[in-house]
Nucleic acid binder design. Structure first.
Ligand SMILES: [Mn+2]
Ligand SMILES: [Mn+2]
Ligand SMILES: [Mn+2]
Ligand SMILES: [Mn+2]
Lengths: 230, 230
DNA sequence: ATAAGTTATTAGGGTATCCTAATAATAAAA
DNA sequence: TTTTATTATTAGGATACCCTAATAACTTAT
């Protein structure tokens, strides 16, 4: 058993598939992501193929089968529900929840997850704005997109980050940007694509192009012209 | 690294030490407890000796060192705090919490345990009446003892069970006995040592000698003569 | 005290995970 | 199109955990 490792492999295959939609999920790719070496990963991939949890070939890379997807999405679901529980019920900060959820996601009790999910009011998004798959494995859609794709004048709300990396989350705290903040795009500086914003307290914030690519927002005005460009 | 197995060995050595105070904690003993075979356990015991977590010799059996005790008691602490949290905050039943706590006890986050412990109001006993060690590893004392050691007329309160075995807990539910119930010992039937009780609703309950040995209670009357006999 | 029954240890394997070094297969550059 | 760099795969090991079978060491009951 010790399905804990296997769960992490399947989750990683799912995650890399979502991030690198065009690229194949190769053993090397996975090895970097999981801090392992390619032969180690390849060995495991072969075993996952044998168990019918993935398909694998050099050209297409690793792809989850229906069975593999169900396991992976369930772990993602548990992870995001725990993150939300830690954030909302236990007062952990935005940047602390991921590490603990990495462990809690492997606790195998549907009743426990159902309970905390219902206490939270069946939320659709976690504290980083990531969608929480429902019990059927269906991932809620949202129109969040990187702040970097905004046009001048756009009024938007902070919904999350591309990767819940602690360093970046703390960097945002330093910039005084938090989840659900309303931001107005005042100016896009063409020299380096950095963005000048105002927040709801009318404070100015300057955010780098790199950070703007990682920060996910949604337009608040239904008629916002940003939407056309995406 | 996978310290999860190691934690379970150390916890088992602690638990067997508490249960069988006179007997040594032998590899065979542990093997039965952990559903493993003696050579498997012996191998692990040797590795624990090498790591300085236990002392081991044939005559004395396995004994935790200070370092080993600290790990073991911390797992016990986490287990009992989680059981209490599941019972009190998440409305799980008496008999459901153990299985889930077996998993949650290995989640390594002091901040998480501190948080739920404080939400619970720093309780001293878990839902089975087992003492919750404090952060320093000190186990609260209580005067709970098996119901079987009661004398006629004793008024006592149900504080727990010797082993949080699901079958026994469900059996108690069937007998209509729950945690914190007040019981009066009406008669001890000498033929088979079974005990006739009344509960707070004045209902009669007949409990077998075997069950009475597993059910832990404490006298409510400070002057109760039971105390002398223990 | 000796035979029989128990317990403790050794020997020898098996699987799951991981690794380094070497080789084969591709892709990129010159 | 060679040469060079990158990837993918194989080969060969190491460690953690588990097991069965065999042996050694102890107990217990004649
Ligand atoms: Mn996360
Ligand atoms: Mn998240
Ligand atoms: Mn328990
Ligand atoms: Mn308990």
């Amino acid at each position: 058993m010790n399905s804990f490792k296997e769960e992490n492999y399947l989750k990683a295959i799912y995650q890399l598939g979502v991030i690198d939609k065009e690229n194949v999920v190769s053993a090397t790719h996975l090895a970097n992501w999981l801090f392992l070496k390619p032969p180690t990963v390849l060995e495991k991939l072969n075993s996952l193929v044998n168990k019918g949890l993935i398909k694998y070939d050099k050209t297409g890379g690793a792809k989850l089968t229906k069975k593999g997807y169900e396991i992976a999405i369930n772990i993602v679901r548990r992870h995001r529900i725990w993150e939300t529980y830690l954030y909302k019920q236990l007062n952990f900060s935005w940047s602390e929840v991921h590490e603990i959820a990495e462990q809690l996601e492997h606790v195998n009790s549907d009743k426990l997850i159902d309970k905390i999910y219902s206490i939270l009011g069946n939320p659709e998004f976690d504290p980083h704005g990531d969608p929480i798959p429902n019990k059927q494995g269906i991932v809620p859609k949202s129109d969040r997109r990187p702040l970097s794709k905004s046009i001048k004048g756009c009024v938007c709300v902070v919904l999350g980050v591309s990767h819940d990396n602690e360093v970046f989350l703390n960097y945002l705290s330093d910039l005084n940007i938090a989840l659900n903040d309303k931001l107005i795009v005042e100016q896009i500086i063409s020299y380096d694509e950095s963005i000048r914003l105002t927040n709801q307290k009318n404070e100015f914030i300057l955010i780098s192009a790199k950070a703007a690519e990682q920060l996910l927002v949604a337009c608040l005005k239904p008629s916002c012209k940003c939407k056309i460009e995406i």
